[in-house]
Structure formats: C-alpha cells, structure tokens
Simulated scan of single mutants.
Amino acid sequence: MTRIAFTKGHGTGNDFVLIADPEGELDLSPEQVAAICDRHFGVGADGILRAVRSRSIGAGAAALAEEPRAEWFMDYRNADGSIAEMCGNGIRVFTRFLLDEGHAVLHEGSTLPIGTRGGVRDLQRAGIGFSVDLGRWRLQPGETLVSVRDLPVARPGVGITLPNPHIVIAVADEAELAGADLTVAPTLDPNPAEGANVELVLPREPLVRDGVGRIRMRVHERGSGETLSCGTGAAAAALATRHWAGVGAPNVWRLEVPGGVLGVRMFPTQDGEHVALSGPADLVFSGELEV
C-alpha cells in the first residue's frame, strides 16, 4: 500500500482530487484513478489533477518548448481513468492548489502558465477566482446528430474543439433541459473516434442583456458522465450559441450551470480568436488515502 496526500477541490461543482507529485514518481493506473474517484467507495470526484513539474513528465517537454516558464504540468485523468487534453474548471482549481500549497506565486496583473496536453494555458486572478485563456478554438465542419434519452427527437449538434472535443445542441424549453436523462451517454452520429462532451443549451429570454449573452447548460462529459459544470464545455456552448445567433451576437457570455455561474469572453489575438473562461475555484478538504 502507498499512502498519498490529497486535496479535494471544485470549480462550480466540477470536483477533483488534487495530488502533488513534483518529480513524477506516482504512477496511478486507470483502475486506481477510477477507485479514487468512485463516489461510494473512494474520495469521489469527476477526475484527478496531478501536479507534476513539466520536466518530470514526458508530455511536459512540449509545454516547456512552447513556454519555458511553464514549470508545472496538469496531468488530468477523467473519473474512469482515461486521459483528457484539458479541463477549464480543473485548471482554475489546479492553480488555487499550487498557490495555496506554496508551489507557485501569482501576483495581481501577472499570468501563470500551466502545461497541459492541450498546450500551455495562462491563468490570471479574476474576481473570486481565476480566468484562463483557453487559446484558439475550432468549429468542426458538418453536423453531428445527437440522440439524448428522454428528448423527443434527435437533433443536429455543432462541433467545437477547445482542445477537448464538444458537440453542442439546443433544447426548446425548461422542460427539455430538465427532463433530458444524462445518466446515459448521448448517441452521436457520426460517432467521433475519440468521443466528445455533449452540451445541452437553453438560451435565456432575452438572449442578450446589457451586452452580455445569457444561456443555461447541462453537460455529459466523456469518461465522467453528467457533471455539475464543464469549463471548456461552457466556452463551447457560448461559441455555438454565438454561431447560431449570427452577426451582432456578443463576445461576452454568462453561463448558468447546475453548479454555479461561469463567464466566457471571446477576444482577438495575433494568431486568431481566443476564448477565456472565468469562475471560482475552491479547495474543500485535505487528507490521505491508500492505493
């Protein structure tokens, strides 16, 4: 048995087990990750965030090549033990963990680069939490037909890569949003080889107030099931809604998810449009576990 110190944290209810492993000495199997994330027999979480120095993990080499200041790498595993590219809520909680544990410093107005399998992401302090630049996004060609249990008909979805793959669909009203059964993974046609997160979006009435777009969202995350929030999914939902709304739609959005409220902002850069996500990041408790 190995004893591991951990911290439990969440971002708008999207919860994680955080483990500091600076030298990359901990090798958790998918089965061990799933056991830790089990909500009945383990700590319980949507995933595990392992804090490793970029020089101590193979995937960190690309992060250091992109940004030499990216000392820390976020090794993210879904609740089923599978590897994910990035996590928008997770990286804010990861940053809170690094700061609270004394592993990093982030002054007002400065940025903290974090390595991920989706590239280096820059974090800043924002309100009660943090803002992360999720980088460039891509609108996928064509449409994916999405069938969700207890929704009356399948409907076309918009594909957004950020860098996690997302398929976003619109629902007609509150009853559809509340009644969709996301305990079962939605069926996608065609089905992407790597899978995808599926977001269900309901526009607010009015859609735009004081220059800010407003939508509600639920999400089924590949490898985790329905979660109370998904950061990159919130960004994908805002991007898809702006796409549907057309010319004149705002670049600032307020996302209501079951676990709270997130902010999304689109802005131009020299290498194309980026999207930023902002929201809270909370650490709940610490302990030890045996694996």
Rank of each mutant, 00 (worst) to 15 (best):
243 H>L: 14
229 S>Y: 03
196 A>C: 00
122 D>Y: 13
155 R>Y: 07
210 D>Y: 04
97 F>I: 06
260 G>T: 11
91 I>R: 03
145 L>D: 14
60 G>W: 01
184 V>N: 02
102 G>R: 12
85 E>A: 13
77 R>H: 15
5 A>R: 15
118 G>P: 08
35 A>I: 13
44 G>S: 10
62 A>V: 08
269 T>S: 15
24 G>T: 04
10 H>N: 05
99 L>V: 08
159 G>W: 08
175 A>W: 02
204 R>V: 02
238 A>M: 03
135 G>S: 12
205 E>V: 12
252 V>G: 06
115 G>Q: 07
5 A>E: 14
239 L>Q: 01
26 L>Q: 11
105 V>K: 12
117 R>D: 11
39 R>P: 10
38 D>K: 07
101 E>I: 00
62 A>C: 01
55 R>I: 15
201 V>E: 00
176 E>K: 09
98 L>R: 05
138 R>C: 11
12 T>E: 09
36 I>W: 07
227 T>C: 00
57 I>A: 04
93 V>K: 04
171 V>C: 07
77 R>M: 05
189 D>E: 14
217 M>H: 00
43 V>C: 09
105 V>W: 03
63 A>H: 03
209 R>W: 02
267 F>E: 11
188 L>G: 02
136 R>P: 12
264 V>P: 03
217 M>K: 01
156 P>I: 10
178 A>E: 11
199 E>N: 07
146 V>C: 01
38 D>G: 09
6 F>H: 04
254 R>A: 11
140 Q>I: 06
272 G>K: 12
200 L>E: 10
63 A>M: 02
94 F>K: 05
123 L>M: 15
278 S>R: 09
108 E>S: 12
22 P>C: 08
280 P>H: 13
183 T>W: 02
192 P>H: 00
94 F>N: 08
198 V>M: 06
207 L>H: 00
85 E>Q: 15
48 I>S: 10
48 I>H: 08
276 A>T: 01
65 A>G: 12
23 E>H: 13
73 F>L: 07
246 G>K: 06
144 T>L: 03
144 T>Y: 01
222 R>L: 09
10 H>I: 05
103 H>L: 15
257 V>T: 06
280 P>L: 04
52 V>Q: 01
156 P>S: 07
206 P>W: 05
258 P>M: 08
118 G>V: 13
135 G>C: 10
188 L>S: 05
98 L>Y: 05
7 T>W: 14
154 A>C: 03
26 L>P: 12
261 V>H: 03
203 P>M: 01
118 G>N: 12
54 S>Y: 06
191 N>Q: 14
287 G>W: 07
146 V>T: 01
61 A>V: 15
9 G>E: 05
119 G>W: 09
20 A>C: 10
84 A>F: 08
34 A>Q: 13
2 T>A: 14
72 W>V: 06
216 R>T: 12
169 I>N: 00
248 G>Q: 10
221 E>V: 03
